[in-house]
Amino acid sequence: MTLRDAFLRQATVCPQLGSPFMGQLCGLLADMLDSPGPVFERMRAWPGDVSAAGHSVPLRLCGALHGLVIDGTAPELAAVYPPNQTDDDALRRAVLAAISTHETRIQAWLDNAPQTNEVRRSTGIIAVGQWLSNRCGLPFNLLELGASAGLNLQWDRMALDLPDVRFGPDDATLRLSPDWTGPLPPQAPVHVTRRRGVDLSPLSIADEGDVLRLRAYLWPDQPDRRARTDAAIKLAHKHKPEVAAGDAAPWLERVLQDLPEGEITFIYHTIAWQYFPQETKERCAAAIVAAGARATENAPLAWLGIEADDQKPGAGMCLRLWPDDVTLNIGRMDFHGRWLIWTPPS
């Protein structure tokens, strides 16, 4: 995919995910790519896959621009960003001026892939967690791959509000209410004994720059996503997540050496697997399968992937269970967790 096509693709996809402004911005940026300057030159010469399935170059640039708006560095740009309304010409002028004026900072943001740590993806994790708890009746040992700031390691502290029923704590400060299709998950108590994650470049909720990155990659005309993320950050300050820095493969090989007795080890990742190098994917899968071969009824293993696949709409929810080594396509979910189609086995 060419760089221009990558921006045009985001211009189409973002409105479908509820962000007309991002559609407008990416469409304009697609027509600016021949502009002079180091930022545009770097993007034009970008090695590898520039699309959302690869290095996500359009979202890197959009996140950098939004960051300038959030922290007040570029007031002229903020004046044409939501909640303000603007026309294409005014937005184009402000964006070009911001890229020229803040070139060094934008270059630094281009160095790193976007990390939204989308909190509503916990919708699918909660549903599967309820199902697993009902099936196994054991506490959870949580392992998240691509955990970012660890916000979705707290899914058991969130509430899933569905018509006439709530899953999760009654006093939960963070409540998720997706459009739900299908039967309801079973009601089952959930207890987590340990929660750990790994990320190549984890973000710290104690670092103001990292928190800015989390907020900047949320789309400017979606304040509800910002509110949920801020609530999850507040929750994480109270219960600090344990997220290791490094490649997922050696970390997973190490932590899976022993499956704790009397617990279900629950591995999961949400819209992260596609960004792993092929060698990392192969080593992670091999480590999980090897651990699955050692799983027992009293030390079971579950592997949930909520990831893009060759079907539409949204992302597939694939659950693999040991000791029986059963693979279940348990549902589909919107990439931002706005809706979920639940299709558990009978």
Rank of each mutant, 00 (worst) to 15 (best):
L3F: 01
P15E: 03
Q16N: 07
M22R: 04
L25C: 08
C26K: 02
A30Q: 07
V39I: 15
D49A: 13
G54M: 08
S56D: 05
S56Y: 00
R60P: 03
H66M: 09
P75E: 09
L77I: 00
Y81G: 05
D89N: 10
A90E: 13
A90S: 15
A94C: 09
L96W: 01
I99C: 08
S100G: 07
T104E: 14
Q107C: 04
Q107P: 00
A108Q: 14
A108W: 03
A108S: 14
D111G: 01
A113L: 15
P114L: 04
P114Y: 02
S122C: 08
S122A: 15
I125A: 03
G137V: 08
G137P: 11
L138W: 02
S148V: 06
W155H: 12
D164E: 15
R166F: 02
D171A: 15
G182K: 06
P186M: 13
R195N: 02
R196A: 08
G197L: 09
V198E: 00
D199C: 04
D199H: 02
L200N: 00
S204M: 02
W219L: 13
R225Y: 06
K234D: 13
H239Q: 09
P250L: 11
L252N: 10
V255M: 12
L256R: 08
L256W: 07
D258E: 11
P260T: 11
Y268P: 01
T280V: 14
K281W: 02
E282R: 14
V289K: 14
A299G: 07
W303H: 12
G305W: 04
A308V: 10
Q311R: 13
A315S: 12
D324F: 00
N329R: 11
F335Q: 10
R338T: 10
P344W: 02
P345A: 10
